[in-house]
Amino acid sequence: MIENLPWEEVAGNPEKYIQLLEERDAHLQRDTYQVRMELRLVRQIKKHMDTAREWRESGIPEQRQPDPAYDQPTTSTSADGKLPPRKERILLLMSQDPQRQWKALEMADALNESSKGKSVRVAMDELYKAGKISKLPNAFYQYAQQDPDCLKLTRRPPPRSRGQGGGQCDEPHRKPSKAPDQFVMSHFTGDAVR
């Protein structure tokens, strides 16, 4: 493309070519966006077709029962009949099938809040930042599994010199805390480090 530009004309009137190239760029961005959306749709169709084929071959899987080791939020309604907070309902739903990977819009549908997809995504991001759920590639979320080696809560240790280790859990299911006084999971130390 650059080899096709008439450089003498470009040098004589660069504003004209800037405008032409910006228009071309905008057009290509629109085309790229449309292709991305079509690709996304086709991938979703393929995923559903694969699921349908698997169910035809093996039957619909049984619903998984929550693991008793997981802390589950209460599901009762308050005295005035209101639902528990959204975050508690998200955690409850995700704990029922800890292996399932959720998109925010799927969670919104499951909570009967389809019109509040963005609010559900924000709540899921906050739960991720709090370490309650995991955030996976392609905007999937999953219930944060408790690694048996990472069950001891410890305070973030003071900075150490190179080569002494950090005393923090390097497991991918937890986002490291930035605040020094917050608790982080650790399996390198046995006692609370201050």
Rank of each mutant, 00 (worst) to 15 (best):
F183Y: 15
A110F: 15
N112K: 11
P61W: 00
G59M: 08
K116L: 09
Y128W: 13
L136A: 09
I18C: 03
S119G: 08
Y141A: 05
D125C: 08
V42Y: 13
M94A: 02
A130F: 01
Q146V: 10
Q168V: 05
A139R: 04
L151G: 13
M49W: 11
G131N: 08
G81P: 08
S76I: 07
G12V: 14
K129T: 04
Q29L: 08
C169E: 01
T154P: 01
A179Y: 08
G117T: 12
Q29R: 15
A104M: 03
G165L: 13
R86T: 07
G81R: 05
L83C: 10
L111S: 09
A104I: 01
Y33C: 02
S95L: 09
K135C: 05
G190H: 07
G167S: 12
L151S: 10
L39N: 14
D80H: 13
K87F: 00
E15N: 02
D80S: 05
N13A: 09
A26N: 14
A104V: 04
M94E: 05
I45E: 13
G190C: 01
L105N: 09
P73N: 15
K82E: 11
Q19P: 02
E15K: 00
I133P: 10
A130P: 01
V193R: 06
D31P: 00
Q99P: 08
V42L: 12
R56L: 14
N138T: 06
A192Q: 11
S95A: 10
T189Q: 03
A26K: 14
H187K: 08
R194P: 06
G166M: 05
I45L: 13
G163W: 07
S115V: 14
L5K: 10
R100W: 15
R43C: 06
Q34T: 03
K132N: 11
R40I: 01
F188T: 06
K152C: 04
L92Y: 06
E22K: 07
P73M: 10
L21P: 05
Y143L: 01
A139K: 05
T51W: 11
L21C: 03
R36N: 04
R64Y: 03
I90E: 01
Y141N: 10
R36H: 04
R89P: 00
H173G: 06
K46E: 09
V120Q: 02
P172D: 07
T32H: 01
R121C: 10
E57V: 15
D71N: 02
S95Y: 14
F140M: 06
L5Q: 12
E9I: 11
L111H: 11
F140C: 10
R64K: 15
L5A: 10
I2S: 12
N4K: 05
M94C: 03
M124N: 09
T189K: 00
A123E: 07
M1A: 14
L91S: 06
E126H: 14
G190F: 15
W7Q: 08
